[in-house]
Design a protein around this nucleic acid. Structure first.
Lengths: 213, 213
DNA sequence: CAATTATACGAACGATCGGTCGCTCATATA
DNA sequence: TATATGAGCGACCGATCGTTCGTATAATTG
């Protein structure tokens, strides 16, 4: 309600809240939002288990905030950097490459928070599921928008179905996580990157805008 | 207790073992292999919790058998039917369509056992992880083999990378599960099917072998 | 036949789960 | 200065987790 600029109880609380959320997203990317236990999270964050309930009413509230936090991280590290590329197929591929780099760099130890959360909550009704579904819908809508931009710019044919292409780009990126972790790491990321590149180069009348390989 | 008099102890044991495994795979497709608790599984299978340990030493043994059971189901309902289609691009697409139908028909209430297991165990070392990884490797190897067959038959260009195309086909099919459950069911399955169809029609010199849409 | 084996059970174990309670104490506010 | 508030903790709760143990009995085996 009021702005407290000085370092005090409130500011420290907000900082520790952020720290806990970061650890929560990190742990949830490995064990899932359900498998994330308050005890383990407490140990990892260096606080007591009961200390959580000063910040969140129950585990579900923490899960909801974790989804939001992961969404902000996703925008910050993937969407925003990609939007600095010129609109059109280059921006679409920049988005995909930023995603692949996010995975390959191991920003989250489990690879991707949302991938885990989607699989975990896709058939588990509740508020978390709805927020995860919204995050996926936003992500797909973003790709669709970039595709329509590319069509407007003449870098993709008018006949292309933005929703269809968005599905393909998302799918080809997502699979890289499990393939990288269960089979061959480098091969998986290379194929994930190349799959979208091949698809875009195949569609665009201006393939020179994209790398050859 | 039971109304069958002719069946012996051993045969009945084997049957109940199979029944438990089926329920286990079914439940695990929803809650995951870890989230699958022996208590809930016992209730669902109509046996006592301690009765499990007549069949499996511990939970991990049951998980390993569940992976095998799911693998046999996958081969029976997806691979074998697809192999009845003529070799080449038609067989590849038949495999993909069988997979989509497996998901859309709701054979498993969670959509796909392996999808769940892959995401859950991709960074959880142990025997289960290795068996899941082997199942994924087998699946990819199968698709690669069908691709090479198609190349031999002249239905795919010689320049195509079988591993790359196998990755794409797997990825485009897998994403349908979460998209169907979190967004729009029919749209997701249609896009999942169409994605592979477009890719194959784009590559093959004999597109007439495949449906138009 | 007797002896062994396999199936299945109920009761209970220690560990851990999410969550509550009462409390301390530094800070913000009136 | 007096008071209300928020951060954080230790102890503890009932429930559930995977697992063990002893027991009962039906089927197989020698």
């Amino acid at each position: 309600m009021t702005d407290d600029m000085t370092d005090g109880r409130r500011a420290r609380g907000r900082r520790s809240r952020e720290a806990i959320l970061e650890r929560a997203v990190s742990l949830a990317s490995v064990h899932g939002l359900g498998g994330l236990s308050l005890g383990r999270l407490a140990d990892a964050a260096g606080v007591s288990k009961s200390g959580f309930f000063a910040h969140w009413r129950d585990k579900e509230e923490l899960q909801l905030d974790a989804v939001d936090w992961a969404g902000r991280q996703w925008v910050e590290l993937i969407v925003k950097p990609a939007l600095r590329s010129p609109a059109g197929v280059r921006r679409i591929f920049a988005l995909h490459e930023a995603r692949m780099r996010f995975y390959a760099d191991g920003v989250l130890p489990g690879g991707c928070f949302f991938f885990m959360a989607q699989v975990e909550f896709d058939d588990q009704p509740g508020r978390v599921r709805e927020r995860v579904a919204q995050a996926l819908a936003d992500w797909i809508a973003l790709i669709e928008r970039l595709v329509r931009e590319a069509v407007t710019l003449g870098e993709l044919p008018a006949g292309v179905d933005p929703g269809q292409l968005a599905y393909e780009i998302d799918a080809l990126g997502e699979a890289a996580i499990t393939h990288a972790r269960l089979l061959d790491r480098d091969v998986a990321y290379r194929r994930g990157r190349r799959a979208v590149l091949l698809r875009l180069r195949d569609l665009t009348p201006t393939p020179d805008l994209l790398p050859e390989d």
